[in-house]
């Protein structure tokens, strides 16, 4: 393989619809056995990129290879969960499962375990049109995860799920990874970064950054936090827009050095906020998510992809 353990490689991928570009220049490598979380806000093109990786869509420009072959030629190596696209609403949950059981040669009985753990085993005789959004997601996840392939591509698998179920889904993903499978999980929920070996941020049509969670957290500029309601004033002293975290307001200081104190003092002077109401906070996945979605490309460092 071109890269020692790369199983999926996207090179210079551009994808446009009706001349409107969604992906501009995406370079991304997915390595054997890793769990890569692809993060980005809604509408940024995560689903489109996953569709290209799955061989479901062809890039307008660039290439996607899976095991060194074009992705469109290796449909036997991936299981692709696309939001709200797998299940037929007029059929029951069990009928949908039976359909994919016949359809996909690598479908396994693991769906029984997944349906049970995700709490939909008792609902399988009901038509999917009577399911909630979260139940549909659980059924789709049970189906997609039951296909025994080397690579899983999950599009927003935790959207619409309650927190206990998200933990169950995370456990399921960890089990897949422990079994040597490769997973790419697209998400706009910062908490999904918790299970990642690597995180890749999709912003402005390209991969803005990729790395381990620790690397990316360490690369963040100092984070300024205030408990006051001076969000408007805070905007004058930070990069990008302020955002709320647990009742406080945060933003990224312009300083990149080891000592953020001078920048905090500058921010206090610029905003008029009492310095005692300002603090430098420990970075979290929420900060990471906001950094790559709220700041412009010129304000961010470049990372490996």
């Amino acid at each position: 393989m071109a890269v020692s353990d790369a199983v999926v490689t996207a090179s210079g991928v551009r994808k446009s619809f009706d001349e409107e570009g969604v992906l501009e220049d995406v370079d991304l490598t997915v390595r054997d056995g890793e769990l890569l979380v692809l993060m980005g806000p809604n509408g940024v093109g995560k689903s489109v990129l996953l569709s290209c990786l799955a061989g479901s869509d062809r890039p307008t420009e660039g290439s996607v290879s899976v095991f060194d072959e074009p992705a469109t030629a290796r449909a036997d190596t991936t299981s692709f969960l696309l939001q709200d696209a797998l299940c037929h609403e007029k059929l029951t949950g069990r009928e949908n499962v039976a359909f994919y059981d016949r359809l996909h040669p690598e479908f396994t009985d693991a769906w029984r375990d997944y349906a049970d753990r995700l709490g939909i085993a008792e609902d399988l005789e009901r038509p999917v049109e009577n399911y909630s959004g979260g139940m549909v997601r659980k059924l789709e996840l049970s189906i997609a995860a039951s296909i025994d392939v080397p690579i899983y591509l999950f599009d927003e698998p935790t959207a619409a799920l309650d927190l206990p179920t998200v933990q169950t889904v995370h456990d399921l993903f960890r089990e897949k990874r422990a079994a040597g499978k490769t997973l790419v999980v697209a998400s706009h929920r910062p908490m999904d970064a918790d299970i990642a070996d690597r995180v890749a941020f999709l912003a402005d049509g390209e991969i803005a950054a990729a790395g381990t969670p620790d690397e990316l957290l360490a690369s963040l500029p100092p984070i300024l936090e205030t408990g006051t309601a001076h969000t408007g004033a805070l905007a004058d002293a930070i990069r990008g827009d302020p955002y709320a975290v647990a009742g406080n307001v945060r933003g990224f200081l312009p300083a990149d050095g080891d000592d953020p104190d001078p920048a905090v003092d500058d921010a206090a002077a610029a905003t008029g906020i009492d310095p005692d109401d300002l603090a430098v906070a420990e970075p979290t996945y929420t900060d990471l998510f906001n950094y790559y979605t709220n700041t412009g490309p010129d304000e961010r460092p470049t990372h490996n992809r």
Partner: peptide, 22 residues
């Protein structure tokens, strides 16, 4: 920046099966 990661690995049998899948 280093991008080496710690990844979960299955048994040799799992990996061999994956190779065959490919």
């Amino acid at each position: 920046m280093s991008t080496e990661t710690q990844t979960g690995r299955g048994s040799d049998a799992d990996l061999e099966r994956n190779r065959q899948d490919r």
